[in-house]
């Protein structure tokens, strides 16, 4: 691979993990969504860079589908279905404060990086950095899912984790048959649609989208 492309890809990977960490510490839902869009654009950028030299139409197609699905369709679906005041005004309820969340996210990034090392040495891949940052992003996304109690950030946490899995995937399985495109083109927008629909229903029926705080079904409070 061309040296400039390798360096540009490294820059994209760095920005990807920064965007993922920023999602865990941002308190506004709207800003969290903007960061998810940036994270998706960076995934697409990495796919374009890895697919540029040697040319891989598979990766270029994956980048295009990512932009269409995650930068255009999903934000539109969420904004259309989830009540506007949640997206625009409300402060996020979070089970952990910002400095602690930042520290834990950084720690998880290092853990992910270390965890990926044996895999990187196990077999050749297009970009070792993608695998390391993909695993790190998966862990940070998991943390995001765990600390948020609001519906939309929880959805964004799942989508951020999926982005991270595909960031690793494009480097280790660039000619993966059909699954990535199909999943991103149909599965992920359907996921966003159903989650947003459920969040809207919850808001209308119980007046909140703080789904993390629901505890009617816990066994021990009966």
């Amino acid at each position: 691979m061309n040296g400039i492309i390798v360096e540009l890809n490294a820059l994209v990977l760095g920005l990807f993990i920064i965007a993922t960490i920023a999602m865990t510490v941002t308190r506004q839902i709207g800003a969290c969504m903007q960061l998810f869009i940036v994270q998706s654009l960076l995934l697409a950028a990495s796919a374009f860079l890895l697919g540029a030299s040697p040319l891989s139409w598979h990766l270029v197609a994956l980048g295009c589908v990512t932009v269409l699905s995650k930068v255009v369709i999903i934000p539109w679906v969420i904004r259309a279905l989830v009540p506007g005041e949640i997206n625009q005004r409300r402060e996020l309820a979070q089970t952990i404060d910002v400095p602690a969340a930042l520290l834990i996210s950084l720690g998880l990034t290092l853990v992910g990086y270390a965890f990926a090392q044996p895999l990187i040495h196990a077999a050749p891949s297009l970009s070792a950095g993608n695998l390391a940052m993909g695993v790190a992003g998966l862990l940070v996304g998991l943390f995001l899912l765990a600390v948020r109690v609001e519906a939309v950030p929880q959805l964004l946490g799942i989508l951020a984790m999926e982005n991270a899995a595909f960031l690793a995937g494009i480097a280790v399985a660039p000619d993966f048959p059909l699954i990535a495109e199909l999943a991103i083109a149909f599965d992920v927008p359907l996921l966003a649609f159903i989650v947003a629909l459920l969040a809207r229903t919850a808001y209308r029926r119980i007046g909140t989208t703080e789904v993390g705080g629901l505890a009617a079904l816990r066994e021990w409070i009966r």
Binding site: L119, G141, A165, A168, G169, I194, V195, A202, L214, A215
Partner: peptide, 24 residues
């Protein structure tokens, strides 16, 4: 609604972990 949310979040979380396994 709580049950549906938990079902969705935990099983989709599982699916996301599984997709990395499929890719590997």
């Amino acid at each position: 609604l709580e049950a549906a949310w938990k079902y969705m979040v935990l099983t989709l979380l599982g699916a996301t972990i599984a997709v990395l396994g499929v890719l590997l």
